[in-house]
Amino acid sequence: MGEKLIVTPSPHIKSPRTVKGVMLGVVISLLPACVGAVVLFGMNALLILITSVVSAVVAEALWQRATKQEITVGDFSAVITGLLLAMTLPPGVPLYVPAVGSVFAIVIAKQIFGGLGSNFVNPALAGRAFVLAAWPMSVAGAWLNPLTHDAVSSPTPLAVLKGGGTNIPGLWDLLIGNRTGSLGETSIILLLLGGLFLLVTKIIDWRTPVGFLGTLFVGTWIFGKPGALFQGDGLSAILLGGAVLGAFFMATDYVTSPVTPKGRLIFGIGAGLVTLLIRLWGGYPEGVTYGILFMNLMTPIIDRFVVPKYYGYEHDARARKSAEGKR
């Protein structure tokens, strides 16, 4: 007998998909929007992106070196964290903001808990929430005009809406990203391109972004206009702010979102609701960050209570009882 019989525990069916492969896919899907950010906002955007990614990767490598672990920066997860954090920042922030944010995201939000797969909040969003709390003026006020790159003191479209105004850019400008906003959130078409790539390659589940954006659309349509129901501008609501970026690239993070399909739908809807709550009635113009962070906290509970049906499960309580008796 030439062949050995190897006995191993399950699982026996392996997928060619690896952590590195998935992460690389996400990086590729983010690239068009990053290029768009550099075209729209110029060298500033490029510098912020580079600073953020380099600090994230260096922080991860140094931490793993210091704690004598295997250095895993080659899996691109730190690159994604850096890219996503940079994309949520305004193009005019001083460079220490993305640097500090990235280090916070990698070390405090991720590595302390045991590295990739152990963090309970999305590292990039935790980093953003941290720098937003630390330097509120420079993170919420350093906007640049697209293409002309001059610093503007005029607020973003969402802040205009929050102040009760109605003068926001038209639909086409919103789609190509010709508005003030964070680096990577404005070029909607390029973001959707990346999101579509992730959906087609089945890296992300459609339920989270659809639940998120759908809730935001319907909720804004119903409550968006003060004093009148069903007259809000739902379409602008999902094109403005970081909704598309968050829904496709942050809410779908494997580690911090539920594992079951139904759980993912609940996650998307919940994040949409909190975003809506903060946008319409909260203290901040934008709520995507906090919407996703809040649902990150809820993820363990969702996973605990939203369990798929057993194979052969029946709705009849008596049948279930007898089935449980047999198990």
């Binding site: 309970f120 909040v121 935790a126 929430a129 903060i278 909260g282 203290g283 906090y290 962070l293 809040f294």
Partner: peptide, 19 residues
């Protein structure tokens, strides 16, 4: 540390419905 991260996430609710 985890509590602080959770507090950071709840920061978004500050001044909710204040107006």
């Amino acid at each position: 540390v985890a509590t602080s991260l959770m507090a950071l996430s709840f920061q978004g609710f500050s001044r909710l419905f204040a107006s």
